[in-house]
Design a protein around this nucleic acid. Structure first.
Length: 291
DNA sequence: TCTGTCTCCTGAGAGC
DNA sequence: TGCTCTCAGGAGACAG
C-alpha cells in the first residue's frame, strides 16, 4: 500500500513522463467513489493542458498545469500510476498472472480497473492510473482553489520532529499509533512505517498518546525519519499492489522488523512479534522490545 | 472537541 | 472444484 516513500518514488519516476508534455486526450472509467471531480469534466478540461510540475503533499500527488489548475491524485490502498511501457506481474490480476507462460513478459493492457489513461501530443508513452479497490481519489482544483483534504495536512512525515509530536500527543487519549496515522499530525505516515518507527523507538502502539514522554516522541520522530529515508533508498515497499511507474518493485519489505511479521522471532530479542488491531489497523509490535 | 465506528471497494486466501 | 466468508486498509462522515 502506498505511503510516503512509495508516493515520493512515484512522483520522482513519473516526473519525466508527465512534466512539459501536452495532454492530447484523457480516457476515464465510469463515475465512481474515487472521482471527486466528475470524469466528464476531467475529459473536457485536461486535453490541451501541459503539466508544469509534479509535487507531493503527504500521500497526495499534485500535477500543476499550465493555466494554474492542479490535478490531485491519491493512490489509496491499491492505486498504481505507471507508464504504458511498464511491465510487471503486479499490474495483472492473479488469473492473468497465472496464464503467463514461463518467461513471458507481463505487459499491461488497460482493464476494468484502469480509471485514467493519458495520451500526449508527442505520441510518446501513455500514463495510466489503475486502482482495483477504488480507495484512491482523483480531483481537479481550479486555479487558486484548495480542498479541505489538502488544507488539513500536517507537516511532512519526512520532517517529523519530536517536540511537535510531543505537543500533538499531550492530553490525547488515543493510542500513539492512531495519532501517527492522523494526517493532520504527520502527513504521509501510514500503517507500515508507523509500526516500524514505534519498534525503533521501543514504544508499544497501544500506549495512550498522552502517556508518551518527550524523549520517546523524539525517538519516534527519529525512527520515522530513519525508516522513511531507508525505504526511499530501497525503492519503497512492494507489498501486494505497489509498483513504481517504470514497473519496478521496491525492496523495503525485506527489511521490515515488525509489520506483517506476526509470530516471527524479533530480530533484536527473539520474542514473537504480536499483532493487535488499533484504530482499525493491524498493528505489529515486539512485546520484548516495546513498552 | 475528542473518540470510536461505519462506510466505500474488490481480490486473495482459508475453510467447507 | 466451487462456493461462501473474512480480511486487508486510507480517510471522511457521523454519532455519542
Amino acid at each position: 500500500m502506498p505511503e510516503l516513500p512509495e508516493v515520493e518514488i512515484t512522483r520522482r519516476r513519473l516526473e519525466p513522463l508527465l512534466v512539459e508534455r501536452q495532454i492530447a486526450a484523457l480516457e476515464t472509467s465510469r463515475d465512481s467513489y474515487l472521482f471527486l471531480t466528475r470524469p466528464a469534466l476531467l475529459r473536457r478540461r485536461l486535453p490541451g493542458r501541459t503539466v508544469r510540475r509534479l509535487r507531493r503533499l503527504g500521500k497526495y500527488l499534485l500535477a500543476e498545469l499550465d493555466e494554474g489548475s492542479r490535478l490531485v491524485i491519491h493512490l489509496g490502498m491499491t492505486g498504481q500510476l505507471f507508464s504504458s511501457r511498464a511491465a510487471s506481474p503486479r499490474l495483472l490480476s492473479a488469473a492473468a498472472r497465472g496464464a503467463l507462460a514461463p518467461g513471458q513478459q507481463a505487459s499491461f493492457r488497460p482493464d476494468g480497473h484502469t480509471h485514467l489513461r493519458f495520451r500526449f501530443e508527442d505520441r510518446g508513452p501513455e500514463v495510466y492510473f489503475r486502482d482495483v479497490r477504488k480507495f484512491g481519489k482523483v480531483l481537479l482544483l481550479r486555479p487558486g482553489r484548495s480542498h479541505p483534504r489538502l488544507d488539513r495536512l500536517g507537516p511532512d512525515a519526512l520532517e517529523a520532529e519530536g517536540e511537535a509530536l510531543f505537543r500533538a500527543a499531550r492530553k490525547r487519549r488515543v493510542p500513539i499509533k492512531a495519532l501517527l496515522l492522523d494526517q493532520a499530525v504527520l502527513a504521509g505516515c501510514g500503517n507500515i512505517y508507523a509500526d516500524e518507527a514505534l519498534f525503533l523507538a521501543g514504544v508499544r502502539p497501544g500506549r495512550g498518546a498522552g502517556r508518551v514522554t518527550r524523549q520517546e516522541c523524539e525517538r519516534i520522530a527519529c525512527g520515522l525519519r530513519q525508516v522513511l529515508l531507508r525505504s526511499l533508498s530501497t525503492g519503497g515497499s512492494s507489498i501486494s499492489d505497489y509498483v513504481a511507474p517504470d514497473g519496478s518493485d521496491g525492496t523495503y519489505q525485506d527489511e521490515r522488523r515488525v509489520y506483517g511479521r506476526t509470530g516471527d522471532a524479533c530480530t533484536s530479542c527473539g520474542a514473537r512479534i504480536s499483532r493487535r488491531v488499533i484504530a482499525q489497523r493491524s498493528s505489529h509490535y515486539c512485546p520484548g522490545c516495546q513498552r
